[in-house]
Nucleic acid binder design. Structure first.
Lengths: 138, 138
DNA sequence: TGCTTGCTTTAGACAATGTCTATTGTAGGA
DNA sequence: TCCTACAATAGACATTGTCTAAAGCAAGCA
């Protein structure tokens, strides 16, 4: 994640303890935390960090394209640090577990012109739903 | 939409003025209202209907499979009465307009076993994003 | 090193969306 | 027509996110 910090510094981001902590919390594979979860983990590392700062920082990371915002349920948004490799999501309908997945094919090509209603279509988001091994066993 | 009312009555749904009004509001093609919008339109027809009743009724319609819940933005859920024909959505990134679309192909088949992480995958939701003709012209 | 400046953080109020509860109302069958 | 169980109501409450005004501090510069 120090790559990320370097990139951000290079873009003129003022480095603060709070921002460093948020970036650290978001490190890893298959990480999809809500803002509140990010806040909870950030507080564990830096007790005086405020909720507003976490929201601000997440918003900035999204604007900079370093983190993706995904809404796999209709509750809180989740933040996905795996922004540099295009991917979709597979969600457990029971426990909410999320995995990054890479389907074959290009869904954008699967939308015929006749189904585009004159839109300039630029992006597609695919969410698979199912039951994870843990929940299936239970 | 009287089809819907008939089906519901057949399932033992107790018919009330409130439920009829909610069902009427949801009639049509490319209808994707938020709960609040449904409430506003319902109030226009039946001023004393309460917010809780609208939420309850929408929830019941979703449970019965008569209406789909879609979250195309991360704000309010939207309710789609077109539940009996599988489809996906195309959303304008600027104004939020939504169209029902029917891509060719089956995205479920595009997810290799190696990308299923042991999940039993049963469903897929595809959201296309772009700019609608109106917004492109502006 | 020690200013200075403007960006950043903070606490908490506020807003939007959704859920729950206790009470009152009523649809539909006996 | 009456009863009873289901439905509707008002409003409190919960969750998630946004905004504001004041205080703090990173980083450039003397």
């Amino acid at each position: 994640m120090s790559d990320l910090l370097e990139r951000l510094r290079g873009r003129g981001w003022r480095m603060t303890a709070q921002r460093r902590v948020v970036a650290e919390v978001l490190d890893g594979e298959h990480v999809h935390l809500t803002a509140d979860e990010v806040h909870a983990r950030a507080v564990a590392k830096l007790p005086e960090i405020s909720r507003a700062t976490v929201y601000n920082t997440l918003g900035e990371l999204v604007s900079l394209g370093e983190v993706l915002e995904v809404s796999t349920d209709q509750r809180a948004k989740r933040y996905d640090p795996n922004a540099h490799q295009p991917h979709h999501h597979l969600v457990c309908a029971q426990c909410g577990a999320i995995r990054d997945v890479h389907p074959v094919g290009n869904p954008l090509a699967d939308l015929p012109d006749s189904e585009r209603f004159g839109f300039r279509v630029s992006d597609v988001e695919v969410t698979y739903r199912g039951v994870c091994p843990n929940c299936a066993a239970a």
